[in-house]
Simulated assay, not measured.
Amino acid sequence: MTTAANPGALLRTKLNERRGLLVPGCGNALAARVIESLGFEAVYLSGAGLTNSFYGAPDLGFIHLGDVAQHTAAVRDAVQLPLIVDADTGFGNALNVRQTVRTLERAGANAIQLEDQVSPKRCGHFSGKAVIDAGEMSGKVKAAVDARASADFLVIARTDACAVHGIEDALARAERYAQAGADVTFVEAPTGIEELRRIARLPCPQVVNIVIGGKTPALAAEEFGRMGFALVLYANAALQGAVRGMVDALGRLRRDGILAEDPAVVATFAQRQALVQKDLFDDLERRYAG
Rank of each mutant, 00 (worst) to 15 (best):
M1Y: 05
N6Y: 02
L10G: 01
L10E: 04
L11Y: 02
L11P: 01
R18A: 08
R19N: 15
R19D: 12
L21H: 03
L22H: 12
L22A: 15
A29L: 13
L30N: 04
A31F: 08
A32V: 06
R33S: 14
I35G: 13
L38S: 12
L38M: 13
V43K: 04
L45F: 04
S46Q: 10
A48Q: 03
G49Y: 02
F54H: 14
G56K: 10
A57F: 13
P58E: 06
L60P: 00
G61I: 00
F62V: 14
I63G: 00
H64I: 05
D67N: 15
Q70K: 09
A73L: 10
D77V: 02
V79H: 06
L81G: 13
P82R: 02
D86Y: 03
D86K: 07
A87C: 10
T89S: 11
T89Q: 03
F91Q: 04
N93L: 04
L95N: 12
L95F: 11
Q99W: 12
Q99I: 10
R102I: 14
L104V: 10
R106Q: 13
A109V: 05
N110I: 02
A111C: 07
I112Y: 03
I112N: 10
V118S: 07
V118E: 12
P120I: 08
K121N: 04
S127T: 13
A130C: 11
A130Y: 05
A130T: 13
V131D: 00
A134K: 10
M137G: 05
S138I: 01
K142I: 00
A143I: 02
D146Y: 07
S150K: 09
A151H: 07
A151N: 12
L154H: 04
L154S: 05
T159R: 07
T159S: 10
D160T: 13
H165I: 00
A170K: 11
A172Q: 13
E175K: 15
E175I: 05
E175T: 14
Y177M: 05
Y177Q: 05
Q179W: 00
A182I: 08
T185M: 10
T191F: 00
L196M: 14
A200S: 14
R201L: 11
P203Y: 11
C204K: 15
C204F: 07
N209E: 08
I210E: 01
T216P: 09
A220R: 01
A221I: 01
F224Y: 15
F224T: 01
G225V: 01
G225K: 01
A242K: 06
D248E: 15
I258F: 12
D262G: 03
T268M: 02
T268K: 04
F269Y: 12
A270Y: 01
R272E: 08
Q273V: 06
A274V: 13
L275Y: 03
K278L: 15
F281S: 09
F281P: 08
Y288M: 13
A289L: 10
G290D: 11
